[in-house]
Design a protein around this nucleic acid. Structure first.
Lengths: 259, 259
DNA sequence: CCCAGCGCTTGATCAATATCAAGTGGGCAA
DNA sequence: TTGCCCACTTGATATTGATCAAGCGCTGGG
């Protein structure tokens, strides 16, 4: 499957590849291939060896973990993000299952060549370390979110985060099924319904996948968003350089570039 | 505070520094200093800028997160481990506060010099990426542990993990106060007591900080440890090379080398 | 030696979340 | 169009975990 040059540029523009030498980048792309997957495809199973670094170019994907016949969503990924980086770096087995939620275009880069590129190109190795740092911090936020907040607080913060990521208007569209959201937020679908019902008093109106926040101030007072948990409200209006990439990782919701 | 050469060697032997060029290592150590802290000292507050990479040489330390006057322990660190690496790499604010639990010897390495070393020494940059990958995967395990298991299951797995890390004998010593363990496992101290009580039927006897596992098979059947959550039972008896460093990260309990 | 404080436990109660069981409505296929 | 399936909702109930309130036992200071 040949890559369109538009897509190559989008990948090249990722923080992960921005600082790589042109030669490094060309080598990585040379052995890579772009593939289309229908919705609901399992890309990689928990416990399997990882042969590729994945880059979601278009569509929507999900990372989930399993234990004892229970299942939980660890992250929902949107374009453009890489995933499974940590396993690739260590040449280890996957700790999470990766699944497409929508029909998706996914770039697969040989894991072996990624490891080689790191050794040969210090700039790229640094970029990998920075990417992983961002992913790591995203997960720290996730754990804090999970351990310190109750269900409706998690939902409230998710909604506020989605609101800004969707332009700041009063109404936002849930990007996937509510059942996935429930799992992501660490509750049952039934409880998500009830959590939405609780937020009615705070001006939250639900209409299918469309949610409207009528009293953002009230909702905010309930949610108590925190820059050390919710990455959407970062103070650094300055510094648009290297270090801001962590901003893409969100604790309550979509964790960009999760591995 | 001059470092003993014994300690220098212990640091040098860390996976993080093993592959670094001698020159890189010397530079890093040159600007570093070793400091002793009494128990209960706050090394770094959540939200503060991070100026140093910390290496716990001796003692016991804790990483905790806060929100809305609630507090949770994210990890308990034992020697020798590094922490706050991710924040150092990104030159970002700390997401967790770091506290000593016991009197501790801590090596502090300039963050600026770490970032410089990464750019100049690809081998070191790769090691940083590998370390971060291990930390990342440790946190993935933590999240799965937290979201998929109930309180007594988490405790049971913690005990089994501690047992192997303390030599595999039937009796083990809790390395810190039970209240810290409770917070680490995501429950209240009261509930930890009750969780211990529940495990009585599975041969768990508690006597102060000393815990004996009389029926390991029964306990194991309850705990259902999983190599994709509990890092203590890794299959890789082979491959003692680079990639095994992740083994030090444990989901249920002490996450070595957490950042 | 005694007492105060603290960590831990235990019991009673309460709140939060999960589970079970219908029931509704929309979309898709026959 | 009809009818079924599936996501979602809602209610009733069960379970789990948190909170509140004593009480116990060890330790360190007076």
């Amino acid at each position: 499957m040949p890559m369109r040059s538009v897509d190559i540029e989008r990948v090249r523009a990722l923080p992960l590849f921005q600082c790589a030498a042109q030669r490094t980048f060309d080598n990585l792309i040379a052995g890579a291939f772009l593939q289309k997957f229908p919705a609901g495809t399992t890309l990689l199973m928990e416990g399997d060896p990882v042969d590729f670094l994945y880059v979601l170019i278009e569509g929507l994907a999900e990372l989930q973990g399993t234990w004892n016949d229970k299942e939980t969503t660890l992250a929902v990924l949107r374009p453009v993000s890489t995933f499974i980086l940590a396993a690739v770096v260590l040449d280890a087995d996957a700790l999470m299952t990766a699944r497409t939620i929508e029909r998706s275009d996914i770039l697969m880069i040989s894991g072996e060549s990624v490891r080689r590129a790191m050794k040969e190109d210090a700039g790229f190795a640094v970029a990998v370390a920075e990417e992983l740092s961002g992913c790591y911090r995203g997960l720290v936020r996730t754990v804090k979110n999970q351990k310190l907040r109750g269900a409706s607080e998690r939902l409230a913060n998710y909604l506020l985060a989605e609101q800004v990521s969707q332009g700041g208007g009063p109404t936002l569209i849930l990007p996937h099924e509510k059942r996935v959201l429930a799992s992501l937020l660490g509750m049952t679908p039934e409880n998500l319904s009830r959590a939405f019902a609780n937020l009615t008093d705070y001006g939250v109106t639900v209409n299918g996948p469309q949610v409207t926040l009528l009293r953002p101030i009230a909702l905010d007072r309930l949610a108590k968003p925190d820059r050390l948990i919710d990455s959407h409200l970062q103070p650094s209006a300055a510094r648009v350089g290297m270090a801001d990439r962590e901003c893409r990782a969100s604790a309550a919701g979509t964790i960009g570039a999760l591995n």
